[in-house]
Amino acid sequence: MSKAPRDIMLDGLWRDNPIFRQILGICSTLAVTNVVLNTAVMCVSLTVVTMMSCLTVSLLRDWTPRNIRMMVQTLIIAFYVIIVDLILKAYWPEMSRNLGPFVGLIITNCIVMGRCEAFAGSNPPGPAVLDGMFNGLGYSFILLAIAVLRELLGMGTILGFEIPYFATPYWDKWIIMVMPPGGFFVLASILWVCRSIGAKEVKK
């Protein structure tokens, strides 16, 4: 049953990466990946929520009756999401406005629920937190890659800073990249690249 910490990390980051292996949980964040800063805040929020929910679910695992565990998990996740939302509202109101409903949508993000159900519910707190963290990070690095590509190609900036060449008139900005269709295309391309690399590894 027990998994070595190294395996937990590798699984979360690459071998079982929630996005390109399992296509989970892209809904809540893909919409804000046209700006790197918004994406980064969403990724941090998601990682923190996943970690904390996994910890709580794991701590309560011996007491939670099986038939109501989904309800308990939802409640725990919603609890942390509301905390994150309140913190953003109080200390970073501009960001809170920018992200609109997307912070709240972390509740229905399949990754958080999936990790609580698949791993944290039957493992001790230490590994559960690690698992939550690395799944969150595995998710974040793909979304950040999408965001960097979209912002760079679409607006010629990264984190709002103008990038040489891309911000000059020589580069014809691909407006479509910051519009919704661009999100689909970039995600599909990244999936393609990652899966091709993954397939080679398996063949070896």
């Binding site: 296509i23 269709p181 689909f184 295309f185 599909a188 999936l191 393609w192 690249v193 899966r195």
Partner: peptide, 23 residues
């Protein structure tokens, strides 16, 4: 369909084209 693109990959590309049409 190219191997790495099968399944979800191609679905996303189609969704992108549809989104383009809806724009």
């Amino acid at each position: 369909v190219p191997e790495g693109l099968r399944g979800p990959g191609i679905t996303l590309i189609i969704a992108g084209l549809m989104a383009l049409a809806f724009v």
